[in-house]
Design a binder for these strands. Sequence first.
DNA 1: ATGAAAGCGCTAACAA
DNA 2: TTGTTAGCGCTTTCAT
Lengths: 345, 345
Amino acid sequence: MAKDPAPALQRRTLTLRDVSDASGVSEMTVSRVLRNRGDVSGPTRERVLAAARALGYVPNRIAGALASQRVNLVAVIIPSLSNMVFPEVLTGVSEVLEDTGLQPVVGVTNYSPEREEKVLYEMLSWRPSGIIIAGLERSPAARAMLENAGIPIVEIMDVDGTPVDSAVGISHRRAGRKMAEAIVQAGYRRIGFLGTMMPHDHRARKRLEGFEAALAAQGLQVEDREFYSGGSALLKGREMTEAIMTRSPDLDFLYHSNDMIGAGGLLWCLNHGIDVPGKVGLAGFNGVELVQGLPCRLATMDACRLEIGRRAAEIVAGKRPDGATSGVVIELEPKLEPGDTIRRI
Amino acid sequence: MAKDPAPALQRRTLTLRDVSDASGVSEMTVSRVLRNRGDVSGPTRERVLAAARALGYVPNRIAGALASQRVNLVAVIIPSLSNMVFPEVLTGVSEVLEDTGLQPVVGVTNYSPEREEKVLYEMLSWRPSGIIIAGLERSPAARAMLENAGIPIVEIMDVDGTPVDSAVGISHRRAGRKMAEAIVQAGYRRIGFLGTMMPHDHRARKRLEGFEAALAAQGLQVEDREFYSGGSALLKGREMTEAIMTRSPDLDFLYHSNDMIGAGGLLWCLNHGIDVPGKVGLAGFNGVELVQGLPCRLATMDACRLEIGRRAAEIVAGKRPDGATSGVVIELEPKLEPGDTIRRI
DNA sequence: ATGAAAGCGCTAACAA
DNA sequence: TTGTTAGCGCTTTCAT
C-alpha cells in the first residue's frame, strides 16, 4: 500500500546542540527554554533565546515527537476542496484548534475510497493525535485502520450510520425528507431532481433517498431527473435545467443536490422569463453564502458546516465540557432557508 | 514563537518489532520488505507482508524520518482556501507529486504575515523536502527562515519581485496593464474599480497599480472605486456595483479585482437592464470556471493556477527536464478572455 | 539474503 | 535550577 518514497536528502539543519554550544547551556536546558517547560532562571533563559534567535534555530519536531511520543497534528480527511463546503468545515476546525497547540493537516480523497485508504494510511504513519474524517462509509481496510488507531476519531458531516468512534453531522436523509415536505406543503406536485453523478457521494444519495421517501409518503414521486459530473457546476445547473424543462415542461419544482447547480437553474429560469416561485419552485442544498448574491435568494438548507468543524475539533482537542474524546455523537439540525424560490402559502 | 503544545499521549502502536516477532524475521529484514529495499527472498517477503497485514501494522514515519534524514512532505503555504483560486493550484501540485512519493501538506495564512510566519515555522519544524509558498512579500523573519531552510523553495503566483529561490507565476502588474489596454482600446473611457480591502493581498494591489499606470499612459485614470471585505463576494459585487453606479452613473467600465465580485456586478447590471457591454463593460480576474455559467460570459484573465501548481511541484520534485531544483524562475502568460462583457470594436 | 550495532535529535526521568 | 542518562522506532552501515 505504501508507495516507494524517494525524497531529497535534507541539508543538515541546526540542532539543540548548536544552540547549546552557542549559549553555553546544556542541551536539556535549551530544550526546556524552547518549550517553556520546567524552571529556568531568567538570565539563562535570555541567553538561550538570544542564541536560538541569532542562529535561526527551528526545532526538529520529528525528533521531538519520537522522544516524547506525542504529535501535535490532527488529520482532517475530506473528499474535496473545490466545492465551497469543506473549506468552511476547515475554518471551524482551525478556529477551535487555534489555541490548543494542535495543528490540522488536511488530506483530500476526491471521493475515491482507494485514495481515502491511501491518505489515511499516510496520515496514520505520522501518528497524529486525532482524526477528523468526512463520512461514515468507507472500505473495510480504512475502517480497520480507524478502529486500531488508538486515537480519537470523529466522522463528520453525516450521522446516518454507525460511527467508528465519534460523529458530528446532520442526517441527510432527514434533510431530504424535510425539504420534500416543505415543497409538497407549498403545493408543488410535479417534482424534478438534479444532482451529481458521484456514486461515492453518500450524503447526496441519502438526501435523495429521504426526499423520495417523503414524496412517496404523499403519493408522489420524482417525475424526472438529471445528473452531471465535472465542469462548472453553475453552467451544468443551467444546462441540466434547460434539458429537464425541455423534456418535462410541466415540472413545477426542481430540487438540486447543491446550491451551485441550484444557482445555475435559477439563473436559467430567470433568463427564460419563468415565474419563480410561481410557475416553478427551486431549492438547493448547503446554504453557501453564494446564494445571498443571486437575483433572488435560492431556497436551501444549511448544512451546519462551520458548527460541524468546531464540534469535531472540540472532541479531538478534549475541549468538551464533559471532557469526552470518544464515543460522542452529535446530530445537528439543518435549517430550511426558504429564500424566495419556494412559494409561500 | 512556538506555542506550548499539549497534545494527547499516543496509545502504543505496533512497531517493526511486533511484525518481526510475528513473522520470525529480523526487524531489519522486515524493514527492507516494507520499503521494497535491497534483496529479500520471495518466501521471507511473503511471510513478512502477511504478518504486517494481519497485525494491521502502519509504519512510524516519525522514526523513519529521523533515522533516514528524509521526509516525503512538501509544505504548500497559501493565503486562503475559500476563494476558488488556491484549490486549483493544489490540484496542479497534487497531480505532479502523485507518483513521486512526495505528499503535499497545506498551511493557510489568511493573508496574515504573522500567521504566515507561524505556519512556516511549524512546517519547517517537520523538515519537509520542499516548500511551495504563495507570494513574494513576507516578513524579514519569514524570509530568513526560507533562506536558511536548505531545501527547494518555490514562491508562486507572482513574479513581480525578488524570489528567495525559485518562482512560478504571472506578473500581476502586467496583467493589470494588459486589461487596461484592452479596455481603452475597446473605447471605454470612464473607468471604475471594485476590489478587496486587503492590505496584504499584494497581487491585487499590483494588478491595480499596473492597471492605473496603463490608464495614465493614455491620459486616463480610475474615476471611482469601491472596496469591500468579508461576506459573500457575489453579494458584495452587487452592492458595490449599485453603490458605484449610483454615485458615478456615467462610468462606462467596471474592473473587478476578482471574478466573484465581477459576477455580482454583472448580475446587478443585467437585473437593472443596463446594456452590457454597450453601455457598461465589465471584467474580473482569475478565470474561474464559475464565469462560464453566468448569463453572459464575464471578461476575465486566466491566472494560470493549475499550471502554476504543476510547475512549482516539478521544481521541488526534481522533475524538470534540466533537473534544476533551485533558482528557477518561470513567468507564465495570463490570457485575456474577453467573454461577452467587453465591447468588440 | 540476512542480521547486529550504532545513532538520527530530541525529551522523560532521575540525579545533583 | 541545571545536568546526565537512556531510549523513542526506525534506517544506515557493515558484517556474515
